[in-house]
Simulated scan of single mutants.
Amino acid sequence: MARETTWHKSSYSGATNNCVEVAESSRGALVRDTQSRERGHLTFGAEEWTAFLHHVRAEAR
């Protein structure tokens, strides 16, 4: 049975309509443009996604 993908808006998007949505799992993450959902998504493996989050959080400090 296929599991439904649960998307959430990025916390970095704030209250704007210019944002991305993320669906995370233990295998990595899917990322898509909120305004262009029909165009598909990018897929990142767990190691790639963890490295990306580490970099973003370090830059936010």
Rank of each mutant, 00 (worst) to 15 (best):
A2E: 11
R3K: 11
R3T: 07
R3P: 11
R3D: 15
R3N: 15
E4L: 15
E4V: 15
E4R: 15
T5Y: 05
T6G: 13
W7V: 00
W7I: 00
W7D: 00
W7S: 00
K9F: 00
K9M: 00
S10A: 01
S10V: 01
S11Q: 06
S11C: 06
S11T: 07
Y12K: 09
S13F: 08
G14S: 00
G14L: 01
A15H: 07
T16I: 14
T16G: 12
T16R: 02
N17Q: 06
N17W: 04
N17T: 10
N17M: 03
N18D: 13
N18W: 10
N18F: 04
N18Q: 13
C19V: 05
V20T: 08
V20I: 07
E21D: 13
E21T: 08
E21P: 05
V22Q: 03
V22A: 04
V22M: 00
V22T: 14
E24M: 00
E24R: 01
E24I: 03
E24V: 00
E24H: 02
S25R: 05
S26A: 13
S26C: 08
S26E: 15
R27N: 14
R27G: 14
R27D: 12
R27P: 10
R27T: 08
G28R: 01
A29V: 10
A29M: 06
A29Q: 14
L30G: 00
L30R: 07
V31M: 01
V31Y: 02
R32V: 05
D33Q: 10
T34V: 11
Q35A: 09
Q35C: 14
Q35D: 10
S36F: 13
S36W: 15
S36T: 13
S36Y: 15
R37C: 03
R37L: 07
R37V: 01
E38M: 15
E38G: 12
E38T: 14
E38C: 10
E38L: 14
E38N: 13
R39D: 12
G40E: 06
H41G: 11
H41W: 14
L42K: 07
L42S: 08
L42I: 08
L42V: 13
G45D: 06
G45N: 04
G45A: 12
G45W: 06
A46C: 08
A46K: 09
E47Y: 02
E47R: 10
E48Y: 07
W49V: 01
W49E: 01
W49F: 02
T50K: 11
F52G: 04
F52I: 05
L53M: 15
H55L: 06
V56A: 01
V56E: 03
R57I: 00
R57M: 02
R57Q: 09
A58V: 12
A58Y: 12
E59I: 02
E59P: 06
E59D: 09
E59N: 03
A60T: 08
A60I: 05
A60K: 05
R61M: 09
